[in-house]
Write a protein that binds this DNA or RNA. Structure first.
Lengths: 225, 225
DNA sequence: TAGATTGTTAATCGATTAACAATC
DNA sequence: TAGATTGTTAATCGATTAACAATC
């Protein structure tokens, strides 16, 4: 048994790629592809075949030398490792435009993420519906999560409210936070945060304009399926 | 003169941090802070002071030994380097929930990104308004961009349409693309892509659940301002 | 001058890629 | 068996951090 002991040593880039592999494997499974090699995966994802094998090696052995990988088996084991083999409940804080887009995004459900409750602090919104969910008072997160036991939260509120919302989520038992507010959160030990910042992304893109871009091999460039 | 020649050698993580520095410097400038040291920046952003100085060193010299950096001067030079000192026009493709949230997001304007046109392929949407912008036929991107000359595009369409939309954007003269479709784009040389994938982010977070998370020092952990 | 802080070089750390023995 | 492909070790590459001479 190794997984638990050194799981925290898995590089973050590896985890990001694992999510990509899982998506690709799901598509292949739908097309009833039986077997795939690491170099097939390189063609499909743009990720180096050695990288692929190395990434898997953090979690055990998955393939057969000379043969390759069984698509369905690998998919299922990846899903297990990434903890998305069952529905994962998620709390959403912020019922503005972004929160609405997230709650209505079918891709989440497709990958087993299930937004179970939405919160806001605006009394004009509280009690109304966001898609099929009632918008609840942000003050009641803990109470509500006693029922749902979600450990993932999404922060989709303005920057000035983000830190306080983080505290409420953590108090409610959330251990992992996806933060859309463009401000660095100070979080207690044991809580993981990932930040998504549109403006930062656009700024990086803006920098590359007017460059003598000879190479420009962006992350994610690949053969199409 | 160095900037142009080796600008393409600037590490991507450096560019991402530069965007963060710029945000922080803008806040400091608003508070009329005159001078700041690299260790002050470490306190504010969580980014190592040596890292900060190293990042700046790719672009020249900005501070005075023994003194620190002039906030307004550094902010303005950063904005220039990142090409956000003037309004940057942006094309948005996809007038769904996500596109709507992006078009209505005040943070873009605040950082000088200006969505100048919105496109969709749904004839029920074409001609209607998204906020203050008329939704246009995706077939007309090139024509419309003859006027706007935007070089940044945002793809907020379903995965199966993303590759085709990329082609249209590039044909219209776009050089940098922010892609929200969870599919790797194959882009021609000279075009830069950055991907934002909510589900991938959530998947990485899900992995960390149930870990014996002793350390968990997330990117972006900092002292508050 | 003494104290503070820069810009940069060198040392460390970590991630990617190549190479290959093991094995189907 | 011969050919293919894995899992893993070793080599390479690149990014982060520490240390310090230069300088305000």
């Amino acid at each position: 048994m190794m997984s638990k002991n050194n799981a925290h040593r898995v590089p973050t880039p590896t985890l990001e790629r694992l999510a990509t592999y899982l998506t690709t494997l799901s598509e292949l499974a739908e097309q009833h592809v039986q077997t795939i090699s690491s170099s097939d995966m390189e063609r499909l994802t743009g990720i180096n075949a050695a990288q692929f094998r190395k990434d898997l090696s953090y979690f055990g052995e998955f393939g057969r030398p000379g043969i390759g990988y069984d698509v369905e088996e690998l998919r299922s084991r990846m899903a297990r490792i990434l903890k998305v083999e069952r529905q994962q409940p998620v709390l959403l804080v912020g019922a503005g435009n972004l929160g609405s887009a997230l709650a209505g995004y079918p891709g989440l459900r497709a990958q087993n993420f299930h937004i179970v409750a939405v919160f806001d602090n605006n009394y004009n919104k509280i009690g109304r519906l966001l898609w099929d969910l009632e918008i609840r008072d942000v003050g009641g997160i803990s109470q509500v999560n006693d029922e749902f036991q979600a450990r993932i939260g999404i922060i989709a509120v303005p920057s000035n409210a983000a830190q306080e919302v983080m505290t409420r989520l953590v108090d409610a038992g959330v251990k992992a936070i996806l933060n859309f507010a463009p401000i660095p959160l100070k979080v207690p030990a044991g809580v993981v945060v990932r930040n998504v910042d549109f403006v930062q992304e656009l700024t990086v893109l803006a920098f590359h304009l007017d460059e003598d871009i000879e190479m420009s091999r962006p992350i994610g460039q690949v053969e199409s399926l």
